[in-house]
Design a protein around this nucleic acid. Structure first.
Length: 498
RNA sequence: GGUCGCGUGGCCGAGUGGCUAGGCAGAGGUCUGCAAAACCUCGUACAGCGGUUCGAAUCCGCUCGCGACCUCCA
């Protein structure tokens, strides 16, 4: 029934059967955000995708150490200014205030999206010593050089001597080395344009600075991930993830750093998520084609007609595969909203079901069992959430039919019903990480609201029994205005909020 | 300019050689006091042209269109 877990490895460009280094345990490193301004939706998609991967691995029973860093130093802008420093200057804050502010914001949003926190969330500034040690190791290996107090990686030498550079990102080394484009600002110290900084000597106005054997300065951008993944997961670990746009140069350079410092490849499986698009173009902080999570929640944006809840957005993400681009539009969000509600409704109906007396497994029973198995097979096939979701929707249609009496409950064994209830719940809440927003938000008041609603429904039922349509419709319309929908069914009336 | 990828019905989005993806929207029907919800049925989609094949959305070639990366980005 169950296929083994297959993952698409960016390094080999193939789906491979996943085998962890240590049985039952998985080390996973995902490149986190650079915290110099508000997190945007594109980041959220990536981290939601990895959250689902993380959750599924946990569901499969693995003990997963999930490390996702916070980059809070060393990430330079085009003009050579540190991202954090720029943020500090603009907001008139201490660099660490900037970092804290946007880290908090990032955490808040990820919590709203119901993403599980990583096991370890290391910060670059908290690992300066580890980074200095790694720079030294790379220098010792002979693949770095010193220039005016800065240390650069000798990409040319590495590419020539080791058959590694360019493999991950599919770069042709000769092309890289040719480097026809003129974009060499601030690069006069480098021997070759493809070289990159491991340690930068700080200019006098640069306030984020640390002592090192080479100069008072700061670490290069790619270094923190190499240093921190090695520290917490070892020289080689199972999964390294991140957005597609990090493949080059970030991940390629990470590999180069690890190779020279540790003598081995850092990760066995590289997983890359694809971009979130809007209007058919990459969502990007830099060119303004963007909508913030808050704007999408509130609908306060020219790109949407109304607000969409975090779980609708999460559902929207689930509907595409993590390696495909996903194009955000108002229409697509509306469809996702409907679909999300349908799925939640089906689950609610399912969880209320009880097996029929003397039920025996029939054809329908087998169909249900097959669909459940297929859903897991889809997840095992490189975390194919859209296909798994499709199977869940097929189950939803069976569930609703059973509820309405269009399909015979007698054909579903108690055992299968119980398993379906468990699997459906597991999928929606544990693996997909969705929340039922209708019940989640009420929580404590849920019971009192339930009581009131039951009263209102009873009164309306009485009116209907008396053919007092005016009263019954008034109740229905008034509730509708309050965003409560009544659903008349065979066994009485249900209601939903929103 | 170089590298890689994509182009699926009204919209989103799976699918890699023959078998129903799925969601949303639309049409018809069942149910209902009416409606909503739910259920059933339906549309014969694969950018264009050519090739390989008994058979292609799926493989190959060309053309057109779009995107990503090559420079900071999840």
């Amino acid at each position: 029934m169950k296929t083994p877990l297959q993952v698409y490895n960016s390094l080999t460009r193939e789906k491979e059967t996943f085998t962890p280094l240590v049985e039952g345990r998985i080390g996973m490193y995902v490149c986190g955000p650079t915290v110099y301004n508000d997190v945007h939706l594109g980041n959220c998609r990536t981290f939601m995708s990895f959250d689902i991967i993380y959750r599924y691995l946990l569901y499969l029973g693995y003990k997963v150490r999930y490390v996702r860093n916070i980059t809070d130093v060393g990430h330079l802008l085009d003009d050579g200014e540190d991202r954090i420093l720029k943020g500090a200057r603009l907001d008139q804050l201490e660099p660490m205030e900037v970092v804290q502010k946007y880290t908090n914001g990032f955490h808040d949003i990820m919590r709203v999206f119901n993403a599980l926190p990583p096991s370890i969330e290391p910060r670059a500034t908290g690992h300066i010593i580890d980074q200095i040690e790694m720079v030294q190791a790379i220098l010792d290996s002979g693949y770095a050089y010193l220039a005016n107090g800065s240390v650069y990686f000798d990409t040319l030498k590495f590419a020539k001597e080791k058959d590694v550079y360019g493999k991950l990102s599919g770069r042709v080394v000769e092309d890289l080395l040719a480097e026809s484009r003129e974009n060499l600002k601030n690069q006069d110290e480098k021997r070759h344009p493809a070289d990159f900084a491991l340690w930068m000597k700080a200019s006098p106005e640069h306030i984020m600075r640390w002592n090192s054997p080479w100069s008072v300065g700061f670490p290069g951008w790619h270094l923190e991930c190499s240093a921190m993944s090695t520290k917490y997961l070892g020289k080689t670990f199972d999964i390294h993830g991140g957005g597609n746009d990090l493949k080059f140069p970030h991940h390629e350079n990470e590999v180069a750093q690890n190779f020279t410092a540790c003598g081995c490849a850092p990760a066995n499986y590289w997983l890359h998520t694809n971009m979130l698009l809007m209007n058919g173009r990459k969502m990007s902080k830099s060119d303004g084609n963007t909508i913030s999570p808050e704007e999408l929640f509130t609908g306060n944006s020219p790109h949407v007609s109304k607000g969409y809840s975090p779980m609708v957005i999460r559902f929207f993400v689930l509907q595409s595969h993590y390696r495909s681009t996903l194009d955000l539009s108002d229409e697509a969000m509306q469809a996702a909203e409907k679909g999300y509600r349908r799925l939640m409704e089906a689950n609610k109906n399912l969880q209320k079901m009880t097996p029929a007396a003397g039920a025996k497994a029939g054809e329908l029973d087998q169909e249900i069992v097959d669909l459940m198995d297929q859903a897991f097979d889809e997840m095992n096939d490189d975390f194919n959430t859209p296909r798994a979701l499709a199977r869940l929707f097929e189950l939803a249609s069976r569930i609703n039919s059973l509820k309405d009496g269009h399909l015979p409950m007698q054909e579903v064994s108690a055992e299968t019903l119980e398993r379906l209830q468990k699997v459906f719940h597991n999928f929606i809440f544990d693996i997909f990480g969705l929340l039922d927003e209708n019940t989640a938000e009420s929580n404590g008041e849920a019971s009192s609201l339930d009581t009131v609603m039951q009263l209102v429904i009873d009164i309306r039922q009485q009116a209907r029994a008396n053919k007092d349509w005016a009263t019954s419709d008034m109740i229905r319309d008034a509730l509708a205005a309050a965003k409560i929908q009544l659903k008349d069914g065979k066994d009485g009336t249900d209601w939903t909020k929103g």
